[in-house]
Design a protein around this nucleic acid. Structure first.
Lengths: 144, 144, 144, 144
DNA sequence: GTGGTCTAGACCACT
DNA sequence: GTGGTCTAGACCACC
């Protein structure tokens, strides 16, 4: 897994890292049980303060994306959302509305939005019907 | 137009308000030339400091969504994006990737994401082929 | 970098400061990645309220001239315009017309305007064909 | 003379009008002694409050561009700047620096700036060596 | 330490 | 009346 930070981005570093980890999982590059780098290791790799990596892992753990085990390390979680069905639906609707509103103000039309979403889905695990087997194939390829 | 703020949200108040204005425009509830509430009026309505509303309007003006005219009021702008094509495409791709990644971690699959986007598009101006006439129809309906 | 404000100017303080920062960048005294004074430091130096400096930095960030990074500082941005070609041309034509009209009413003739523009170009990064190397030379000189 | 205001412009209306009058003079469409519309007439033509036109004429009179004569009307002035030589030079240098700095941040190079200035000069009275005769020719043509 | 947000309240400029 | 600017001072988030 290769993470990098863009020092010219307005987004906080810990958020950039957290989003990249979530993206790697969504693309199948990382799966349940996979071990993440230690705080010190990752901090050295991307050249940031260890505190910032700690913040990244705290954020991801709060979202149940990863689990940190004392003395053992940090691992990708099972991927099950712990939210109630209604809350999940609400968040999905909200992020969809957010995307559509922003796209509207960028001057795009419905077809462009659908195409962009299709491309993003294609790049993710969500493209294939059988997500779990698809993920393993991807990872096997990367390791060969 | 009815705006409200959630004081418990991690998003700043001025951004909550700005997004709601952008949403109202995207849904066609507000169109080019329409007048927004005065700074003091909106501040009173939602119970925040006038400076916070000023901040909201500043943000929206910087994005070319509205224009503020001293002594006259604040109005919805023309709506044309002034960004280069490459930048617009980049922002569209980024917001699509973001939406898909978040949806994945909420446990949704491709079909759910497409459906949510479809619903959001339906609620927006982007649903109809002829956006400008669509807006007028929507507003006419509200008045009948 | 030495900034100062003229309290008697009709231009607002935050704009005076913003223009001086843009000028320093255009002259090559500041380049991509360089750090600007902290909000509190600059506020103390020029004798204004920190909020006014925040306003300056917000304005410059909205124009993509600088980036503000919470906890880290404020830095000069990459410098690439994200505006569409047509918009850039429109703004260039407008500022040229404005300059020429003002010069006319000051009683100057074409040759004076061309000479003044030539002098201003000479003092900027735009004088040399290779802008990026030119900047480094300028800064190296300042340090010797 | 045809003046118009852009309600979507962020510039104050009185400034838009004042700049257009100065532009018409710089282009030779108006010359010394020519009569400007009355306040009420101009206010009706462009559809603004008479107070705004009063403000426009006050601004132009303060800059010695026009003269208002009680009961007679408002006329274009002689065009002589009343500023000291040093102050005129300072203002010319400042407006040139302003234009160059803005052009730099729009991503233009020296040649583009020179070309834009050349085009603006061409559209103005400053293009011809003999400004006064050139102006009269232009006006004669318009009236024929 | 850095920037980010918000309140409170003043005074000015424009229509 | 409208928006525009500035000060003062508080508290929070990030590194």
């Amino acid at each position: 897994m290769l993470l990098r930070v863009d020092p010219l981005s307005p987004d906080p570093i810990f958020e950039q890292l957290a989003f990249q980890v979530k993206g790697a999982i969504a693309r199948g590059e990382l799966g349940p049980g996979d071990r993440l780098p230690s705080v010190r290791e990752l901090a050295r790799e991307v050249g940031v303060n260890p505190n910032t990596v700690v913040r990244t892992y705290e954020t991801l753990e709060a979202e149940r994306v990863i689990v940190r085990k004392q003395g053992a390390g940090t691992f990708v979680g099972g991927g099950k959302s712990v939210l109630a069905e209604a809350e999940r639906e609400r968040q999905l609707a909200e992020l969809a509305e957010r995307a559509v509103t922003e796209a509207y103000h960028l001057g795009f039309e419905a077809q462009h939005v659908r195409a962009a979403i299709a491309r993003a889905l294609e790049a993710s695990q969500l493209a294939s019907k059988k997500a779990s087997s698809g993920r393993r194939v991807t990872r096997a390829r990367k390791r060969s």
